[in-house]
């Protein structure tokens, strides 16, 4: 647990409470603009789905990671539960994917409640390490329990029923589903900015002991944040499963995926409304561009980008931009 100097020589820990209403208008304008994306860039629709979907999942991660300050490196568990519950119910029981996604969400919430209840007494890096252990064990079990999950060979989705007359495998439909999910995640983040519950979470992030002294029950509030975060991530996972059409435990439950969600939020600015969205746009869009211009070197440049952001914009890009504008 790194102790930052109390006089605040590093502004990262300064509370960002009551950041203003203009961000709500901003969010609505942005979502409205995004609805034109499929018409404007029809040939980049797959890229668009990926960015919006990852933005939604990174925002969901941010409820726990950014707003509550509990660094989880195991969120791929919920992506995997969402994708696998949906897919297995379709394959084995013929349950429609949207109901499957709901069941997956319920399962994720139950898992998060147990996981959080047990590990939230750990603080700082210890919680992060425990989350890695939980996620890796889940991946190993999913990989080996072939009778349930289909094992390492992975599973592919059959033809899905129409959802309100819409083909779920159409990229345009997936784009708007992801956009709705992003809207939901942004609404939660906006609410956290100004609600009593949100203030509690931010107080816990700034100083857990002080929050406890003020009568906040940190474990209870952290578990609630975890449940919300898990539910949203799980919905994203179900959609991600449909988007991929074929997946395996190695990808769905991977540490890389968990780390990616955390990176997106941090690079854009954890605990801010637009941070995860900016991060997802930069990392997903950026790695796509890099794949074109630096074939085979995209991950290298990705690593360099992370290092540069940490050195020069340690609170994420959106915070750096805001500070530059204010100065």
């Amino acid at each position: 647990m790194r102790r930052t100097p109390p006089s605040g020589s590093h502004p990262a820990t300064r509370p960002r409470i009551g950041a203003g209403t203009s961000s709500l208008t901003g969010a609505l304008v942005l979502l409205a603009l995004l609805t034109f994306y499929p018409a404007a860039f029809p040939s980049f629709i797959t890229l668009g789905v990926t960015i919006v979907l990852f933005a939604a999942m990174a925002s969901a991660w941010d409820v726990l990671g950014g707003w509550t300050g509990q660094l989880s490196l195991g969120h791929a568990v919920f992506v995997g539960i969402g994708a696998y519950t949906m897919a297995l119910l379709v394959l084995r029981n013929g349950v429609a994917p949207w109901w499957g996604a709901m069941v997956g969400m319920g399962a994720s919430v139950v898992v998060a409640a147990m996981w959080g209840g047990v590990t939230f007494r750990l603080r700082g890096p210890y919680f992060a390490l425990a989350s890695i252990a939980v996620a890796e064990m889940t991946r190993i079990v999913a990989n080996n329990w072939a009778r349930l999950t289909g094992g390492a060979e992975g599973i592919s989705l059959p033809t899905l029923p129409l959802f309100l007359g819409l083909d779920l495998f159409s990229r345009r439909v997936e784009f708007y589903m992801a956009l709705i999910l992003l809207g939901l995640a942004l609404a939660v983040a906006w609410w956290l900015q100004r609600s009593r519950f949100g203030y509690h979470l931010q107080a816990i992030r700034e100083d857990e002991d002080a929050a406890m002294a003020l009568g906040i029950n940190p474990t209870r509030e952290k578990v609630w944040a975890f449940l919300a975060s898990a539910a949203l991530t799980s919905l994203g996972g179900s959609l991600y499963g449909i988007f991929l059409g074929f997946f395996e435990p190695r990808g769905m439950f991977s540490l890389d995926l968990s780390v990616q969600l955390a990176l997106m939020a941090y690079i854009g600015g954890a605990g801010t409304l637009f941070g995860p969205l900016i991060g997802a746009g930069l990392l997903v869009g950026g790695s796509e561009v890099l794949r074109i211009y630096f074939p085979g070197k995209s991950l290298f440049v990705y690593g360099v980008l992370i290092i540069l952001v940490v050195l020069f914009a340690p609170d994420g890009l959106s915070t750096a931009v805001r500070r530059a504008r204010r100065a």
């Binding site: 590093h10 990176l263 290298f300 690593g303 050195l311």
Partner: peptide, 27 residues
């Protein structure tokens, strides 16, 4: 890479080492 962020919050060093790992393994 690490000395400049010695006073930053702990997630900064986690991100930094993730970045260093990516760069080294791709090199």
């Amino acid at each position: 890479l690490l000395e400049p962020i010695v006073r930053a919050p702990e997630h900064a060093s986690i991100l930094m080492t993730v970045g260093i790992g990516l760069v080294l393994s791709n090199l």
